[in-house]
Design a binder for these strands. Structure first.
Lengths: 243, 243
DNA sequence: ATTCTGCCGTGACCTGAGGTCATTCTTTAT
DNA sequence: ATAAAGAATGACCTCAGGTCACGGCAGAAT
């Protein structure tokens, strides 16, 4: 097992730069903004730090002064992109009132529209999840766990309080399953790169998409939701359908 | 949507090299073997084509003659690694007889042991799934769809025939859900890079792991399995199904 | 046996990317 | 105003992937 971890010597640059001195925050965020554009358009590897600097009209060295390395720059870009996404519970009040699975549906349906409005952060998230490096991926995973940017933990707590989610499954497990499947399902919805054949085979038919979403949610609900017996639903569950 | 795909010009090298002339197949596979070792130990980016060639005692140029690019070499390595894995239905007869979910459990438990015996292909699969490039990832996804190396499709067919899996969910959807969750669950089991906190928080306690597997399978079964009434598994379906 | 022929390996070479750093410019504090 | 600290510069370096003209060598043809 010893050889499995990547080279333990030389910690990543973006970790050594923990307190990079309080440099001009404005410039930092300008760089991040332009870099996001470049990464999104070109992909991680094809994007050039030199180009980013040129676009900004600054020296390439400056970028490295600020972020230490290309990895470090991307990590900042990634964090910014992911933080710009809405959290699950940011859904409208009436959607929240309809319950956890309606919240999920709301975002699944919306995701595609939001993609068209502003696809850049989505592309960045995709790159972070699949297209960089395992070392960076570890950092990204840490970030996702510590910040819970999509608010999955909050959503699960919400669902547990409403008695919509099963209490006999560890909350950690529910969170993980939600994160895994929602991520993959959305990736499949959004990009051809990762579609396991769910949406590509059918010719972009929107109503089939709706059907897929419906089916997916039904599966999820059986998996982690409380039993809904087809005959006369339990009164105590039904009671809190509000709030 | 137009800008989202990566640069359409210049198709990847490993695609242009489709028929690279029938060069010595023996040498090709020797290269792939050594390259697999290097990629697994160093990671995709840190692995050097020059080192691989040096280890083999051949010129770096030869490697490029054979595979066109580092990407192309890795793709071959990835395919070999993934093909070396057992398929779901390769489980022992008595396990298959016990049904789909017992087959899944069997492999979940075994995976960890197999990892210790020979971790290299697992590491390669991990790199292919998360640690290279989106362009390559697309190719990898195509490969996974066309070859179904883990035999998920066969397993689902098996489960449908045995009436263990729901017929009211598209088979495609079941396959995808199985692939997604099994992959992520195994990744979390095997590596710290991708563990969403499911296994890391607890101090490597094997019986907790067992419990997690148990819970995970229960969730899966509710999600895609036929409703199980409180009585035990149906005896009428016996295991003479060979595929 | 000798020549011919075409595949294959070679390694010197190129390109261009990430990354460094001494120096210079700019801002801020006193 | 002056000094000290921070920020920007751009020439420079390293080194990795990738190219290619050439030479050798195996097998076929004579």
């Amino acid at each position: 097992m010893s050889g499995i971890a990547s080279n333990p010597a030389a910690p990543p640059r973006y970790l050594r730069h923990v307190p990079p001195r309080p440099r001009s925050e404005a410039k930092r965020s300008r760089i991040v903004e332009v870099a996001m554009q470049h990464f999104a358009e070109q992909g991680y590897h094809a994007a050039r730090v030199g180009d980013i600097a040129a676009t900004l009209g600054i020296a390439k060295g400056s970028v490295f002064q600020h972020f230490g390395s290309k990895d470090g720059l991307f990590f900042e870009v990634y964090k910014k992109a992911v933080r710009s996404f809405p959290q699950y519970l940011d859904a409208p009040e009436e959607v929240r009132a309809a319950g956890v699975f309606e919240v999920l549906r709301y975002w699944l349906v919306r995701t595609e529209h939001m993609l068209h409005e502003d696809w850049i952060p989505y592309r960045i998230a995709l790159l972070g999840n699949y297209g960089t490096d395992l070392v960076l991926k570890r950092e990204i995973n840490r970030f996702l766990i510590s910040e819970d940017p999509y608010g999955t933990v909050a959503l699960v707590r919400f669902g547990l309080e409403r008695r919509e989610l099963r209490k006999d499954v560890d909350a950690d497990m529910i969170v993980s399953i939600l994160d895994w499947t929602m991520e993959r399902f959305q990736d499949a919805l959004l990009t051809a790169e990762l579609d396991p054949g769910l949406f590509r085979r059918q010719g972009e038919m929107p109503e089939k998409k709706e059907a897929r979403i419906q089916q997916f949610l039904a599966v999820l609900q059986r998996a982690i939701g409380v039993e809904l017996t087809s005959r006369a639903a339990r009164p105590e569950v039904r009671a809190d359908k509000r709030i």
